[in-house]
Amino acid sequence: MNQEELLIKKDRMRFIKNKLPANLALLAILFDVFYFVSIYQSDVRDYYYTIMIGASILYNLVFMLACFLSSEGIKNYKLGYAWLLAGLGIGQIVRIFVLPAQAHATELKKVGRVMADGQYTFVVVCLVVSAVCCLAAALIGGYRSVVLKQYQATLETKSA
């Protein structure tokens, strides 16, 4: 890509939405949905895990809201939302070790292993993909936001 094409590409950013990271953020929500649909089908009749699932429901609501807002924000090249997306991505990785890993490692007398191998693999994949989407959205969106900001500053300098 030559210099002129690069310049046009930057200039285009003034008029087109930052769609790729925005869509990645939406994809992160989708995989989070896959995750919680899978995990809430478990009925372990155990007070501890019921509490954990309750907390997980609340977190999911927060995650989906924050991720959706970030998607809209990053679409308009707002750098702050890239940081939020990065935080949400890291949060998805951490979640693997909170509920699924513990449930997978625990065996109860009444129901046996709380989370079977197959389900565990599935939810881990869902969370990892969701996390990757969030982090990629943060990286791409953040980078583009910075590039656009710098380009606009150049334009302002020129016009001044």
Partner: peptide, 9 residues
């Protein structure tokens, strides 16, 4: 090409 579109617009 998006760059051509940009110029035309």
């Amino acid at each position: 090409d998006p760059n051509v579109i940009h110029k035309k617009v």
